[in-house]
């Protein structure tokens, strides 16, 4: 009994340590976002004078609201397309026997490891030539590309967990290969697809390099890029308050995902990499 209580106390301390590790930097930004400009320079962890001014300010800023819309729209569209194409490919990899399967896996792996910066100059040129520069599709296309390996790996490992015999059973029950997929495999793959969709959306939401390289105005600039272009209204005014408030807003969707889908995110992140 005593050792048990000791162990619990030790684990409580460990948990607390982890919680501090995670939360302090986050709380600092939150605190900053509530600080009144006059107390900005006090270096205190907790605001001395609370205000909502910073939040009011950024929502009055059309660049930021436009950035949020861009982020949400581009993220959702890219996620949707990546999931559809990724599921198709993952199904083929997990279930079907065809020549070129290993090549496809190798190509996806290559893309997953690809340094994005290497694509900035050619994409910059190509998109300008095609009129895609500074448009939604101009960002959606590279996002899909870099999300595809993630979706293919994660989904194919999810799909592999579905027992093979179900597909054979469906065929014996009179299903075409497509019906076997759509009526038996797809519903079972749904949880894996939701998980993968969340991971993909987080990836798109997080991108910065493409967002600042392939845009030049608020037409397509996403929220993280918008934040980095914040300036004070005058040369001497520090935009820190607005940046902090915007940072908090951008973080809220992530917190919601994490709270509601913790288990799924963990299984999704680890399935592709370890189980194979």
């Amino acid at each position: 009994m005593r050792t048990d209580r000791g162990a619990r106390a030790r684990w409580l301390a460990v948990d607390l340590l982890v919680a501090l590790y995670v939360l302090i930097p986050v709380l600092w930004i939150v605190s900053l976002s509530f600080k009144h400009p006059s107390t900005f320079g006090d270096g205190s962890f907790i605001p001395r004078r609370w205000t909502l001014e910073n939040y009011a300010g950024i929502f009055d800023n059309p660049d930021f609201t436009r950035g949020l819309i861009n982020s949400i729209g581009i993220g959702l569209i890219a996620t949707l397309i990546a999931i559809v194409f990724g599921t198709m490919a993952a199904y083929a990899i997990a279930r079907l026997d065809f020549p070129g399967k290993n090549t496809l896996v190798a190509v996806s792996l290559l893309v997953a490891m690809f340094p994005q910066i290497s694509l900035v100059s050619p994409l910059f040129q190509i998109e300008r030539a095609l009129g895609l520069f500074d448009t939604w599709p101009g960002l959606i296309i590279p996002y899909i590309t870099f999300a595809l390996p993630l979706t293919i790996f994660t989904l194919s490992s999810f799909l592999r967990e579905i027992p093979w015999e179900l597909e054979q059973a469906a065929k014996m029950d009179g299903a075409t290969p497509f019906q076997a997929f759509w009526q038996v495999i797809a519903p079972l793959a749904m949880p894996g697809m939701v998980t993968t969709a969340i991971l993909t959306f987080i990836f798109c939401w997080n991108d910065f390099l493409f967002a600042i390289s392939l845009t030049s105005s608020n037409r397509a600039r996403t929220a993280p890029a918008t934040i980095s272009f914040f300036t004070g209204s005058t040369q001497f005014e520090d935009p820190a308050g607005s940046i902090a408030a915007a940072a908090v807003i951008v973080t809220i969707p992530i917190i919601i995902f994490v709270l509601f889908f913790q288990r799924r995110i963990v299984s999704g992140l680890t399935s592709g990499a370890v189980k194979g």
């Binding site: 995670v22 910065f208 934040i227 951008v250 992530i254 994490v258």
Partner: peptide, 9 residues
């Protein structure tokens, strides 16, 4: 949370 938070933020 650190995994999900936007790097820039």
């Amino acid at each position: 949370i650190p995994y999900g938070i936007v790097t820039v933020v």
